[in-house]
């Protein structure tokens, strides 16, 4: 097992239309079994960072390693899964078909133990909906489908870009339990969210981005010790304390 699941070193990126860099000299690591939060104001570069990790945009400066391999390599691609904030799902597929296609893309055997779509749907409160077209799913159900895919595939690195926004409380609780299990299996999660109470419960560390720079790397336990609040620490790191 590599020492880190994700290693970002001196990452920089500038958009064509922008005068200033969207990301500059961003360096951090995510270790095995670690759940790391990624927070920052809108436009601070969180989504840009995630897109660069998944090679969805051309990297300009720095290096990114996923499970010890260059992020553009086949091995890195198959070791990580990205859940975007927008539900751009192939709506012509049913939930079950979507998960099957996803498994095919990751070379995952759907006959293996643990691949139980019905059970996963039931746990998310979507019993009997796995053979319906995604077009007929509500916004929250589409998010749950994305999460189901990530939890069924069990990749070494899961990156969640605000996917947990808009799902019901039961589903959030289920996600927390899943994150706990993932940590036990040595799998890592990079969780981009504005929900500080969630991060307080599940995250080991929180990275704070401001104007494309990593301004803080907070240990959640340390910040919460003595009755502190994560939101206060983040605000302080952002210079708004």
């Amino acid at each position: 097992m590599p020492l880190t699941q994700l290693d970002v070193h001196d990452l920089g990126f500038t958009y064509r239309s922008a005068a200033t860099a969207a990301l500059s000299a961003v360096t951090f690591e995510v270790g095995p079994g670690e759940i790391v939060g990624l927070v920052g104001p809108n436009g601070s570069g969180k989504s840009t960072l995630i897109k660069l990790i998944f090679n969805l945009m051309e990297r300009q400066r720095g290096a990114i390693l996923v499970t010890g391999c260059d992020h553009r390599s086949e091995k890195a691609r198959s070791s990580a899964i990205y859940l975007p904030s927008d539900n751009e799902l192939p709506e012509f597929l049913t939930g079950r078909e979507y998960l099957r296609v996803l498994a095919g893309l990751y070379g995952h055997d759907t006959r293996a133990a643990g691949w139980d779509v019905e059970a996963r749907f039931s746990r998310f409160g979507m019993r009997g909906r796995c053979d319906h077209l995604i077009e007929d799913y509500s916004h929250g159900m589409q998010k749950k489908l994305l999460l189901s895919g990530a939890f069924l595939l069990q990749r070494q690195l899961t990156v969640i870009d605000e996917t947990l926004n808009g799902i019901d409380l039961d589903a959030v609780e289920m996600c927390k339990a899943e994150f706990h299990d993932m940590r036990g299996r040595g799998q890592s999660v990079l969780l981009c969210s504005h929900d500080f109470s969630l991060l307080e419960e599940v995250a080991d560390r929180v990275l704070v981005l401001r104007a494309g720079r990593l301004v803080a790397n907070l240990e959640v336990c340390t910040e919460l010790a003595g009755g502190g609040r994560l939101s206060h620490s983040v605000r302080a790191a952002l210079g708004r304390g």
């Binding site: 198959s78 859940l83 799902l89 012509f92 296609v101 893309l105």
Partner: peptide, 13 residues
Amino acid sequence: SAASRLRLMPGYT
């Protein structure tokens, strides 16, 4: 355009 959403799926290369 019909297959554009497939191209946005995780792991699609």
